[in-house]
Design a protein around this nucleic acid. Structure first.
Lengths: 345, 345
DNA sequence: GCATCATAGACAAACGTTTATCTTGACGTC
DNA sequence: GACGTCAAGATAAACGTTTGTCTATGATGC
């Protein structure tokens, strides 16, 4: 296809005033017509003329001028650590669906967890008169002066609504599944201490295990330490357990990546997943499905988390009351890496 | 940590006027001080007073009012099909790095390839006075009236700069690698006809193969048809080739996902990757590294593509001339799924 | 034939800035 | 003492809208 003609230095943007001048009308009248303002008597004939002229000149009202005196900007500010990795982008995607549907635009900023950037961007967004702030995995120091909803925010802040994964439910699903398959000797992985929701997850795991009468043995607990996103994360711990001849029939991993590492360690020890040992992941990353054996895991409904957060934020902006905290239930995804524990010891 | 105090109905935003009134000065003077306007004589004492008051009231200049008369809004509009999947988010991430660094903010819109939405959002962004448009994997019908850079845009448009992967280079890297390993009978996968850059890739592959003296045999060519993102995409074609007893030592897959499917088919046929057949992917998705055997692949430097596009866009906005098309070189990532062809036939 | 009323539209203020130009008083110079 | 200069700041216009109020003009009522 040949390039189209029109240049992109573009027809200069036409203002209400120019349009009015051309029509021999006042800007006000033109504005009334274009906005279908009520309580104004303007004959259909004039309306036609105005609309045609607007069409002809490709008139676009200046959103800036508009929002200068009307309060509404229909703009949201988003704060997140990094764009492009799976987690944050998916949450943002879910939120974006809602924003677009409700005719809000949003500006995204990323700060790589730098405190001063978080503060700076918050201010800059505010000075652009955003109506609300969506904070994803971001540590806010003070409550912003605009309605705010935080996803996976750490500390509770006055007036800031938190949307978080229901870790209790996650633990129930994971342990419940293993329990039903007959597993009683389960190895546990505990997330790195610096990891954002590592603590709440571990607490929920301990709590649920106790309720179900499952033992969380210290000598079957692996504490992750390395700061990596490769399966190498889960390999050494499980390998060591196997070398020490600890007895267990399943391992509850911190996430899918470490579950893949765990699988490899089991495989390398000459054992089979899931026949000898079941492996349970967390997150449901795309690789969880592709891996062999595909991973049974707990899915975090990231898009849903995003859309719930966005919905709550819009409600707040409209002045409605919303809860301080909203928990989102995860889902159990059963695949190949877990199986019924074998009768034969 | 206990919740902080301050409420988020927030201290009402303070305007220049209010500030000026409080100080007993005119708004203009306050503006001069706060902007360090040159050629204005204002005693240091007054400057101090002004700055202190601004601090005290947490004054934030209204970006909106500012950009109403100055032309600059320092805002970019982004058009993409979908937020949250790997490809687009990574490109956006790379672009965002540049935008943030250069103090531009951006609004992201997604259109799921709906033509009318593309047009509508372009207009809306324009009416918000964006200074430039970044179009990612989006089919633009007409050149927008603002400087525009397109990533993986399909048709060339007058004045729109295109940033694309250098498919020729990609083919050279892939085929060169296989060639060096001794492969001469290679099976090819051709992308679905509806896939965006399927055509240019195939053309480059044919061209490069010819140059290297490699044969692209019709009976070793698999045309993908299913519209799926699961490995199932690559499985049946390769399986069929094996069943038909076609002889080949390597398969050049359309992407990593289909490469995983291909691997499985080979495995299921009782053959080994890479000992019997080498498998080459494309994209370098995260799973490529985790899979067993990990995939040799051609990496699309997505973040780089994004940052190059953003850089070009900013240059255009500054009024500099930039090329109509910019090709980004891919990278060969050698892992376990390819090996030297075995001597023994 | 005059008051009343609806119509069709103009006028002007306001939103929060920036910036060019003007004012005022103090001081210095010859 | 007339004049110019400079400092310190005020005024006002402008950016592109929206919206409350005002004004002509003609039509209607009695």
């Amino acid at each position: 296809m040949p390039p189209r003609s029109s240049s992109n230095t573009g027809p200069k943007l036409v203002s209400l005033k120019t349009l009015a001048e051309y029509l021999g009308l006042s800007a006000a009248t033109v504005s009334f017509v274009l906005n279908d303002a009520p309580n104004r008597s303007i004959p259909e004939k004039t309306r036609q003329r105005v609309r045609e002229a607007a069409q002809k000149f490709g008139y676009q009202p200046s959103h800036i001028a508009r929002s200068l005196q009307g309060k509404r900007t229909h703009t949201i500010g988003v704060l997140l650590p990094e764009l492009g990795d799976g987690y944050h982008s998916q949450v943002l995607g879910g939120a974006a669906d809602v924003f677009m549907r409700e005719k809000y635009f949003f500006m995204t900023t990323h700060h790589r967890h730098k405190k001063d950037l978080v503060a700076e961007y918050t201010q800059l967004l505010l000075s652009r008169r955003i109506e609300g702030l969506l904070s994803i995995d971001t540590h806010l120091e003070v409550p912003p002066t605009a309605p705010t909803v935080a996803v996976a925010g750490h500390s509770p802040l006055a007036g800031v609504t938190n949307v978080v994964l229901d870790h209790e439910r996650a633990a129930e699903l994971a342990l419940g599944h293993l329990y039903e398959l007959g597993h009683r000797k389960i190895a546990f992985m505990r997330g790195q201490l610096f990891s954002s929701d590592s603590r709440s997850r571990w607490r929920a795991t301990l709590h649920t295990a106790r309720e179900m009468g499952l033992e969380v043995a210290a000598d079957l607990t692996i504490l992750l330490e390395r700061d990596t996103h490769s399966p190498e994360l889960g390999y050494p711990g499980v390998k060591q357990l196997l070398e020490l001849k600890r007895k267990f029939t399943a391992v509850l991993c911190f996430n899918d990546v470490s579950a893949i590492g765990a699988s490899r360690a089991i495989h390398d020890a000459g054992l089979s997943v899931p026949n000898d040992i079941s492996v349970m992941g967390f997150d449901d990353i795309p690789a969880a499905e592709f891996y062999t054996p595909s991973l049974t895991t707990i899915r975090q409904p990231l898009r849903e988390i995003g859309s719930v957060a966005a919905t709550l934020l819009l409600k707040k902006i409209e002045g409605m009351k919303v809860p301080e905290v909203k928990r989102i239930a995860p889902e159990l995804v059963v695949r190949e890496s877990t199986a019924r524990v074998r009768k034969s010891k």
